[in-house]
Write a protein that binds this DNA or RNA. Structure first.
Lengths: 348, 348
DNA sequence: AACGCCGCTGTAAGCGTTTACACAAGTTTG
DNA sequence: CAAACTTGTGTAAACGCTTACAGCGGCGTT
């Protein structure tokens, strides 16, 4: 009942445990006859090697730990996919964990991964991530994704949120919007901060002195809906028209925003143009289709893992020498121009 | 550089390795003074326990392995979320792996998980899953999700695909559709088979003798698009009208189908009514919103994990005695009536 | 015939933990 | 004041595996 061990297999095949190990691992210094007997015994006993024991002695797990703020949603699941594909290509396995925004959970997760993984892929966009950094076992190769953890010595890959936001604003202005608004992500989120900063900077540059209403959401569809409502109410009360263009800090909120505008009878993009961020799959399907800034989320995951693998290899070769090489890959989002911001046939 | 071990901590704190272990694990038979010293040393050395070693001696990993056909997409990511939430609540970690439809990959993944997990949550909807069953280490608790693996002794949780398909067809007929068609999933997929069977059975019952065109897709948006095109072409060639109702075996394909119909200028639902399956998030947002059969995918994952945990506990208590209890939970999908199938104000 | 080699096999030492057990104090007890 | 606990600590075995090393035949060379 207890799961056969190598010793059991060895006894069954009537060889030493060393030979059994060799036979099973396909080493070549084993007589054919012995190998046959061992494999047969292993099959009969349904032997499955004990990964824990193996990694203990080999000091290698072939597993990498992935720590995400959350494990689901279009965005994260796409990251995981990227990581998974790249990992699979290298025969690595994934130990995933969601920290659910709680830094203590993240710390617990990291501890639990200790000794079970060869490297860590961490995404923790919370501004106070320093606490996390303090806990990370410093002997493990680590790559951060779109995070703001101090450890520059190791690799990191991030998104040009600031630049993306500026692109979005410029695009709205190009489309003829003369009044702008912004629905931001939570202030505790690093990426949200950057996008907000990009919005303000670009808005000030294009429309100097203009006052742009802002609403702080939390990246959920529902908060986007609330944001749009807030703008609608404020404008109705002040007797002002709606802003001509709204830059929403992520697509999920933009979708909520769209729903609220539609409900209020505002036409998108003619009365209000909308640009989101991320290009999640849904964005193509809402109507009107959502203009957005495409972040190669899949690639983010894939390249993150590749960076990590590089770091691991470097790590195992040179034993702790030249570990500077602060590889800071930054990917730039790309504007996807769809109908939600297509204002005039020929913007003069 | 090599990552501090318990021995290092013990030396640093000038106690025995046993005391160090006790202090760190919070056992109570440790002098306060010693505990303090040990914890301090651990902090200083950035000690992180080696999970592999720990699980080796404790015969417990607090990790459960999750094997899915794929790791991404709305459907699977929602399952993972359910599993993750339930696992987190019990302090368990997740070792996930996508088999990418390849049975050999699945086998490899299972082997790699051996000795690293306390239980296995497997979803493998391929009809020939018997091969997989043969490999599964028989000492591990196992729960299958929407699969067709022989091992009934262990728990399983599945979807009533047949019943759901019948509901869909009945609904289309209620809406006044007198000619029906079906876009199915791949024949190698167990769930697709069941949905197809339900479609045929219900169609035959409601419209005896009617011939229903069918198209075999592969669950991707693109194949749904192709399916609709195929119907359009066939009807154009034969000079017949389009089927009044199409039951599409999953929402992703239904979305593709919708796009093709819109492109062809067919109005949905007036000319062709559409019902999908799964209720993925996108379905609410396409226009018209897609009628579908909601499967509590999140719950599928959550309950699957709970089932597994139950099995694990039963397993550890009674040492291999009453291990029948083939818990076969079956969840029934529920019709979500949206505009894509809303045909007449008052269906006579 | 003695020698070195080669191919195969077994013995045993670890890998980093936990934990049963023994042991040395100090603290009641009778 | 010795016996009996209590409390804290250390020693060492075990978990399942890999692998360096030694051993042992049989082979081809001098």
């Amino acid at each position: 009942m207890k799961g056969a061990t190598l010793k059991d297999v060895a006894r069954e095949a009537d060889v030493s445990i060393a030979s059994a190990s060799r036979a099973i691992n396909g080493l070549d210094n084993v007589a054919e006859e012995v190998r046959r007997r061992v494999l047969e015994a292993a099959g009969k006993l349904r032997y499955v090697p004990h990964g824990g024991a193996r990694s203990l002695v080999m000091a290698r797990t072939n597993t990498i730990g992935v720590l995400l703020p959350d494990i689901y949603g279009e965005f994260f699941s796409e990251i995981i996919r990227g990581v998974d594909v790249a990992a699979r290509a290298r025969g690595l396995h994934l130990l995933v964990s969601g920290s659910h925004g709680d830094i203590n959970e993240a710390v617990a997760a990291v501890r639990a991964m200790g000794g079970r993984v060869d490297g860590l892929l961490v995404m923790s966009p919370f501004v106070d991530s320093q606490d996390l950094a303090a806990v990370l076992p410093l002997n493990l190769p680590l790559v951060t994704i779109a995070s703001r953890i101090g450890r520059v010595e190791q690799g990191s890959i991030s998104i040009d949120n600031f630049g993306g936001a500026m692109t979005a604003v410029k695009h709205l202005v190009d489309q003829g919007c003369r009044t702008l608004a912004h629905i931001s992500g939570p202030a505790s989120n690093f990426e949200a901060q950057e996008r907000r900063r990009g919005f303000l900077e670009a808005a000030e540059r294009a429309l100097p002195g203009a006052i742009c209403p802002m609403f702080e959401g939390d990246f959920t569809e529902e908060s986007g809906y609330r944001g749009a409502k807030a703008f609608l109410n404020a404008c109705a009360q002040a007797g002002e028209p709606m802003p001509q263009g709204i830059f929403v800090a992520n697509d999920m909120m933009a979708v909520g925003c769209l729903l609220a505008l539609r409900e209020a009878g505002k036409s998108v993009p003619d009365e209000v143009a909308l640009v989101g961020f991320d290009d999640i799959p849904i964005s193509r399907f809402v109507s009107p289709p959502l203009s957005t800034l495409r972040v190669g989320v899949f690639d983010l995951g894939r390249r993150g893992l590749e960076l990590l693998v590089d770091a691991m290899e470097r790590d195992s070769l040179s034993d702790g020498e030249d570990r500077e090489s602060g590889e800071g890959v930054i990917v730039s989002p790309e504007l996807v121009f769809r109908d939600s911001s297509r204002r005039r046939p020929a913007p003069t």
